[in-house]
Design a protein around this nucleic acid. Sequence first.
DNA 1: ACAAAAATTTAGGCACACCAAAAAATCACA
DNA 2: TGTGATTTTTTGGTGTGCCTAAATTTTTGT
Lengths: 160, 160
Amino acid sequence: MRKKTIEDYVELFYDIQKEKKKVHTSDIASALSINPASVTEIFQKLSNEGYINYEKYSGATLTNKGIRVAKKTLRKHNALKEFLLLLGIEGEIAERDACEMEHILHPQTMDMIIKFVEVINQCEITPFWLQRLKKYGKTGKLSRCPPELIKICLKYAKKT
Amino acid sequence: MRKKTIEDYVELFYDIQKEKKKVHTSDIASALSINPASVTEIFQKLSNEGYINYEKYSGATLTNKGIRVAKKTLRKHNALKEFLLLLGIEGEIAERDACEMEHILHPQTMDMIIKFVEVINQCEITPFWLQRLKKYGKTGKLSRCPPELIKICLKYAKKT
DNA sequence: ACAAAAATTTAGGCACACCAAAAAATCACA
DNA sequence: TGTGATTTTTTGGTGTGCCTAAATTTTTGT
């Protein structure tokens, strides 16, 4: 398993804090299936770096800095998941891959993927290439692009 | 920096082997800017796990298993880079992110991205959404989808 | 062919992320 | 309210990936 990043922890904190005022080591330990002793160390690190307020034995809460990072990460996560779902990836897998991708992508790439989702969603219909992709994914057969569509695209391409 | 995977090393091996019969610790050390002593340890591990043939002081070559993994990784890498370039990501960044993504994506996601690139490339013109995405990326302004295009997409959607 | 230079490996050490077991603090209920 | 159960932290230990310095092997130039 990949090493967990600060973003991972802070995101999880944010999620747990929605239901509970304070986050306890046991919450994280059970969520990640790791030893509570390890979580204590993580709490100490997150606290040192200013992401959480932590006092021994009494649980922890996100600082403003922590909340900021959590929200930013969540935005990335959601955009990536939406993107993957758009491509026709299964829910569980989209969730998993979004989680992996959110930590590694360059901001410019991230930005472009967000814009990509916006462009596709702003359209009231499923773009034709997406229809073709879905069919290709299911059947393994890749249909041709209809000439009338090509004509229109060419027309708009010239305009630009 | 992220921990290097076996795929990373094997891919690099493959690249170096194109020009040199044998790969030496110094090749990897300079390529990755790490200490030659560390590379010796990596060679031992790769050898133990059957990815390279290695004899002390005389360099190493990929085994068939190693070559298989390298080729598979390279295929993923190229597809991902092509995908990112398609979205309008800059070359250097596309290269970097492809390198990161190739190790983490679920096979189903990888497969869908390869198909995505195929669908877009098979078309002799730039799909309209991609034209819009490029413009959106540059100007920050998101144009609307022209009605005549919507009509055609709807028509083909019904056919399916 | 041999000594100096270069490349490679070994040895020993550090930092880190995890663990299990023991100690300490907190909680829960009789 | 006190004591046993539970949670949390401390302590000490492991494996890994990297490092530097020293030892060893190979290469190179005369």
